[in-house]
Amino acid sequence: MTNMNLAVEMEPSAASHVFHDTAFIDELRLQMLKFATLQVRDSQLAEDAVQEAMLSAYQNIDRFARQAAFKTWVFSILKNKIIDLLRKEKRHTSASQLEEGPNLSGDALIEHLFEENGHWQKDERPKKWDQPDHGVENAHFWKVFDACLNALPAKYGRLFMMREFLEMDTSEICHNEDVSVSSLNVTLYRARLRLRECLEDHWFQKETAT
């Protein structure tokens, strides 16, 4: 394992009890599955990756003590499995659905949205989002949301998912991804900016235009 620095010296028997904490493991499995499914976009592949990561964790359990460290470690195993999978499978995304219109991100998007003096460009000022029914039952909205998520640059998407879907805290993400707190915050800002722009272009503005 690459994250040897996370290892805590301890009795093997004390570590393996983690697997007997059913509530903890169930919750962790669910989080892993969410994470994997969002990245590989195939529930069977995701399930396999989680299974393999869990098995690998079980076989190497003697290195781990604390549950927090355990979680980080298992996720790092899972991430490697996902990377392997993504390398093998040609990733199929629906990003092509969103090809029309500028698909800017990072500094380019910020330049596009704001004037030099730091104020909103006239056409880009956020308007109220009318939400006729973007409810969970509106399948079309979630398709757009899904596509917008897919269209995020990979790094934005990963950090955004860790924060918003896995609900990992800042220190955990920074430790896991080896990024500084300020860089994480800026990346999340850019991810949200991009996602907001995409949702507005492909859902909210469209609604009001028709």
Partner: peptide, 14 residues
């Protein structure tokens, strides 16, 4: 400015 304000509005969540 709006540029900083929007960043603060995002960071507020983090």
């Amino acid at each position: 400015k709006c540029k900083q304000a929007t960043q603060m509005l995002s960071e507020k969540l983090d």
